[in-house]
Design a protein around this nucleic acid. Structure first.
Lengths: 153, 153
DNA sequence: TATTGTTATACTCTATAACTATA
DNA sequence: TATAGTTATAGAGTATAACAATA
């Protein structure tokens, strides 16, 4: 039952990055219109979402790690979001090299405006996909994400 | 057991797009060095991989759908890959508006050079992750990808 | 001397629209 | 008149390096 070899390479359907991308695209198709409506790119939404996580302000570096954005991209984007009044930047008093990034009240209102409709989409997905299967998926994805965490080679 | 509401929004760890992205980044971290070594971007590799799928030549539109690239991006990229001698473009005789895109022999050699090391990474992932769990993951991802296929609303 | 964040630079990809040539 | 592909254009993100301020 192993895949036929095509130049020694598995079929495109068995490419793990592609399988993850196809699933992500299908999910994003549910959410993207919501973001477009509020003039937010996926990346900008990742930043706002990370900052609304309840953990409070974060440094640029921490935010970059959490959102998979490079520091220079993030730095420029924070300028844009700051000019739109959605986030604030302030110097960390304990280490003046650091910036503390936080969501502004206007940013919180924007997130609060999107949240209920986002959650409605989640309920819809959960209903169509099945709650238990969704839990399994989160579990497997979490394990896959931490695969390399202990790689020694 | 439901997540605490943060402005009505689930925590960042329970974001499905982010869970998919974290998993994909972890997987790509295994493969990216291999591509960089051969001066291929992720997107270029997707195209070569799709074309090496055993199904033979494809139109630009079919390729765009398969790789999640927009036609203009793909069109420019095919020019690059053609100049590098990795793909060929020829007019479909039955419909002269269409281009038939195929991998060249040099492209096949490049894929064949990458394939064994790629497959070795897969074996490593399968070993660390577990074969059965990997099957489950593929299965769930496939179902998630086809979620919207029958959406009526 | 190392780290944090920003700026500089070049390139790739995204996204939309306009255009060419076929159908 | 519609479709397939390309070209044009603007903008956003990726990636590296260089830089300023601070530690």
């Amino acid at each position: 039952m192993s895949e036929p070899s095509r130049g020694g390479l598995r079929g495109f359907e068995r490419s793990l990055p592609m399988a993850l991308m196809r699933a992500r695209e299908a999910v994003m198709a549910e959410f993207r219109p919501l973001l477009t409506e509020h003039d937010l790119s996926e990346q900008q939404w990742r930043v706002l979402r990370a900052l609304s996580d309840g953990a409070g302000p974060r440094s640029v570096g921490e935010l970059a790690d959490a959102t998979f954005l490079l520091a220079p991209s993030l730095s420029r984007m924070l300028g844009t979001l700051e000019r739109r009044g959605l986030v604030t930047r302030s110097v960390d008093p304990r280490d003046q090299r650091r910036s503390e990034i936080a969501v502004s009240p206007a940013g919180e209102r924007l997130v609060a405006a999107i949240a209920p409709r986002s959650e409605a989409r989640y309920r819809d997905i959960e209903q169509r996909f099945g709650r238990a299967d969704l839990e399994d998926l989160y579990d497997l994805l979490g394990r896959m994400a931490s695969l390399g965490a202990d790689a020694s080679s």
